[in-house]
Amino acid sequence: MRALDLTYMLDLLPVLLSYVPLTLFMAVVGMVVALLLASVMAVERVFQVPVLDAFVRLFISFFRGTPLLVQLFLFYYGLPQMLPFLTGINGVTATIMGLTLHFSAYMAESIRGAILGVDRSQWEAAQAVGMTQGQMMRKIILPQATRVAAPTLVNYFIDMIKSTSLAFTLGVTELMGATQKEAAGSFLYFEAFLVVAAIYWVIVEALSWAQRRLEIYLNKAHAR
């Protein structure tokens, strides 16, 4: 059994770290847009707007029921064949689209559950003082639902960061794609993937720490 090439691993670390910003960029943009889309869908699912509700149900069912990798291929390889004006779409854009729509479907259900978990007395009190549905959701219901949904949404963000590793299948040289190339050039696959695993691990642990701090803060604010 050969020993680990520690020198190679140390030399590889700064190379791979230079691709972390792209990985985080795709995840952050995907998360922001997914959160907005999921919030809209969650509110719609609560009020069940005629016709629109059927479309939202279908959307959630499709993106939760099919693998993310298949969705990425649909956006990158399939859509340009059906819609010629999308032939210029690049791997980064396709990845962000895939991450956004895939995770928004899951997040919508989590947010919907958090909204429905708000005590009915809060809904009745808001209606009693004459609030419109929009005012009630914005000022009373959503702030309370946020405290419940926040930990789950952070978990989705962590999953999204790890899922960016699929972008290399679309030719994107992000963290995982760079690792593949470096490993193929050196044939030191174990060392290369061990380094990238450590990078992902550190990122996830940092977010997990932030998640715990967020939970403490939200619980304290709620206790006041």
Rank of each mutant, 00 (worst) to 15 (best):
R147H: 11
Q135D: 08
M41I: 09
V148H: 03
V202Q: 07
P21M: 11
L170P: 05
A178Q: 08
G65F: 00
R224F: 02
E174C: 06
R64P: 08
D159E: 06
V20M: 10
T179K: 01
M31T: 12
A108L: 06
T87C: 01
K181L: 12
L37R: 09
M136I: 09
L79E: 01
F25E: 13
H102V: 04
F25S: 06
A210W: 10
L36R: 04
L218D: 01
V29N: 02
G91W: 04
V56Q: 09
S186F: 01
S165F: 02
M136G: 13
V195P: 06
L37S: 07
L36Q: 06
L142Y: 05
A184L: 15
E182I: 01
N90F: 06
T132L: 10
M137E: 01
Y106V: 07
D159R: 04
I216P: 02
E205A: 15
L36G: 15
R147C: 04
A94Q: 06
D119S: 15
T146K: 06
M9I: 12
L101K: 04
L83K: 05
Q127C: 14
F59M: 13
S121F: 10
A126L: 09
Y77I: 11
R138T: 04
A125W: 07
L74T: 01
P151D: 05
F55E: 08
G117C: 13
G78P: 02
A108F: 10
V33Y: 05
T66R: 05
F62D: 03
V172M: 12
L4A: 15
A105D: 03
G91R: 01
P84N: 11
G91K: 01
L36S: 09
T132C: 02
Q127S: 15
Y156P: 08
L69F: 02
A197R: 08
D11P: 07
L194R: 01
L170D: 03
G113F: 08
D11C: 00
A125C: 10
R212S: 13
D11G: 04
V49T: 09
S104V: 13
G113K: 05
V195D: 04
W123K: 13
T152C: 00
Y106I: 12
L214K: 08
F59K: 08
E109P: 08
L79Q: 06
S39W: 00
L116C: 02
V154E: 00
T173M: 14
Y106P: 08
V28A: 12
Y106Q: 11
A197F: 10
V46R: 12
R212Y: 10
A114Q: 08
R120L: 13
R2Q: 14
V51N: 13
V56F: 12
I141P: 02
G185N: 11
I60V: 14
P84G: 08
